[in-house]
Design a protein around this nucleic acid. Structure first.
Lengths: 266, 266
DNA sequence: ACCTGAACACCGTTCAAGT
DNA sequence: ACCTGAACACCGTTCAAGT
């Protein structure tokens, strides 16, 4: 109230604005940069230093170039991060039959397909969910960007389409589909987020997951309120952190699937 | 690789370090600031301007004080945000019997209790979940902070304890509890996150939720791949955005509960 | 067409100094 | 005990200029 208020930046999406660099005419690459190289370096830097450690100036240094060069290819930092976001979404391997109809509408770059193609909707759901989880963990910055931007890039569109296609095979009535999608993918999002953050924390501290886990349990163990919580933590079984996480993830998905199965005949 | 790499800041939690200001001796407030006032102003600013618009300098201006004064009460910006995070967690109203055992261990400031006290675990779960959702939407910055910090403040501890207490009444075996908790609360987290972001976007643009929704559908409607998606979007019913969101949320919770009910007798 | 350098308006935080 | 001012090392981005 006191000082002049700053309006929240409008932040139009990359996907809703003109490409900044017009498509190259011939094959002759000029010398230095290009879109692909910039996005790749961005992702490498994000993986290594995290979102907070990323800056346009750091990126330029990484590319061996002056701070402002990148701006010839990319309008703003936000747009660049949106490109990285969609590139990460492209790493999610999808069952091929779920993306065919989309691909027919135009070529899509990026997504990998798994060799084994499950037919049952439950297995397809498990595949898409665990692929999404895998990518969230591999790129711990992805979750924050998903919360920040619209996520309407080409790869995101393919992903959403695939998720929808799988859920439509569940037998759930149409008016329940969005709910079921929300339950499953918001769960995976949250789960992958904290799993990825924990993994990043371990890398930063130079500890294994199990080491950091026990250390955290130690600093917190003297709090009386955690007695009951610890009982449950211990009951969940698994000797390593990774095993516990896998069990939790798998069974949570089973719960969701069981819920869908039990409510689909109404 | 090129330039000297910056290590990721260690970032110790507020809750794991000494209080910066020793407790006041008598009643005589000095003149200016104090912890409560600072955190309250922080939350007000975060609500109004968003996380990206918040800075220590803005906060100081809001408090009518120089930029560095706040640092006498708070170690870093991170610590301050952690305090705001836990204060927000304290706004989640919990069924009173779920927090009694925690309160016995020591006084807890903040949490409100609802007058109606549901006995059935499903209703308790619905209450805790929708309260969590409500707070996430009211404070759109909360989700980002939950992803950033450890969330082990006193109010967070009470919340986790309550969530656990409710789930233990579900009849699920102990080794499934953490999974079920993850499914439900990660879902609510994700759902509340995007709902809150959408609401904030509306406020920033000066539009109602329905206006912005239709505008977004418009800019995106010309994409061929969205045909199938739109069919499902329309099927979910509800005339307003709020109704659609409420329906989606309610039924997704029903799915989770049905899954728990159906898997608890194994 | 592509890249640079200087400059602007911001950050979080340190540190010596005031009262 | 509390608050200030100047300073440091950073940001994202603009803009005029180079080739």
């Amino acid at each position: 109230m006191a000082t002049g208020s700053r309006t929240v930046r409008p932040r139009s999406s990359v996907w809703l604005s003109e490409r900044k660099t017009p498509r190259r005419k011939g094959d002759q690459q000029p010398v230095g940069l290009d879109h692909l190289k910039i996005v790749a370096a961005t992702m490498r830097l994000l993986d290594a230093e995290g979102l907070a450690g990323f800056s346009m100036r750091r990126l330029a240094a990484e590319l061996g170039v002056t701070a402002m060069s990148v701006y010839w290819y990319v309008e703003t930092k936000d747009h660049l991060l949106e490109l990285a976001l969609d590139a990460a979404m492209g790493e999610i391997a999808l069952p091929i039959e779920t993306v065919r109809s989309v691909e027919a509408a135009g070529p899509v770059e990026g997504p990998e397909y798994t060799p084994a193609e499950p037919r049952d909707w439950r297995d397809q759901l498990r595949q898409v969910a665990s692929e999404y989880r895998r990518v969230l963990v591999r790129h711990p910055w992805l979750a924050a960007l998903l919360g920040e931007y619209l996520n309407i890039g080409p790869n995101a569109v393919v992903f959403n389409h695939a998720a929808l296609a799988v859920m439509r095979n569940s037998g759930l009535p149409d008016d329940r589909i969005t709910s079921a999608l929300a339950l499953v993918y918001q769960f995976v999002y949250g789960f992958g987020t904290i799993e990825g953050r924990f993994a990043a924390r371990c890398r930063a501290a130079g500890l294994t997951q199990d080491e950091l886990y026990h250390e955290m349990m130690g600093t917190v163990a003297d709090r009386i309120e955690f007695d009951e919580a610890r009982k449950v933590m211990e009951a969940r079984g698994g000797t390593t952190v990774q095993e516990m996480q896998d069990r939790d993830f798998t069974f949570a998905l089973d719960l969701a699937i069981a819920g869908i199965e039990s409510l689909k005949e109404r």
